[in-house]
């Protein structure tokens, strides 16, 4: 089988894109962030599949006040971590006996474009996490 120049190029670019994709999809976590997550979970394993929804703008113009909303049915504790902030731990929510819904909205500061990570502890003791990328036009820390 002889390879034409065109075929060689096509194969080459396909190989490159295959090798790049896993890095794009995998959520690269910083060691400091991992330490914060471990502190919250006491080292328990965290599932990335589960009903934990972070609602946040895709592009935040003002990093000084980024509106976020977290919804995790059945959660008793949720921690929010902003990886690139000088102080990555943002806030911990604890839901008490009269809480109607494990849903909460607030406004946070973001230093730069980054992944915002949320980890929730459910009532059965398991942990779930979710991350969302937020582009920040003007940092606000």
């Amino acid at each position: 089988m002889t390879l034409s120049r065109r075929k060689t190029l096509a194969l080459g670019s396909a190989a490159i894109s295959i090798s790049i994709i896993p890095f794009d999809l995998a959520f690269a976590i910083k060691p400091e962030t991992q330490a914060l997550v471990d502190e919250f979970t006491n080292g328990a394993s965290v599932s990335e599949e589960g009903a934990l929804i972070i609602s946040a703008p895709e592009i935040a113009e003002n990093g000084g006040a980024v509106p976020i909303s977290i919804n995790a049915p059945g959660a008793k504790r949720i921690v929010i971590i902003a990886e690139n902030n000088p102080n990555p731990k943002v806030i911990t929510f604890n839901f008490g006996e009269l809480s109607g819904r494990s849903e909460v909205s607030t406004r946070i500061r973001l230093h730069s474009t980054q992944d915002l990570l949320a980890v929730a502890e459910l009532n059965d003791g398991s942990f779930i996490s979710s991350a969302v990328n937020i582009k920040v036009t003007l940092g606000g820390c």
């Binding site: 806030i91 849903e103 406004r107």
Partner: peptide, 25 residues
């Protein structure tokens, strides 16, 4: 009776705003 408790760190915006839910007993 407790509804919620939040522990804030340095990255919450000035003039903190919260919305949460209460199940009325």
């Amino acid at each position: 009776k407790e509804i919620i408790t939040f522990n804030l760190e340095g990255s919450v915006s000035a003039d903190p705003y919260f919305e949460f839910f209460l199940k009325v007993p």
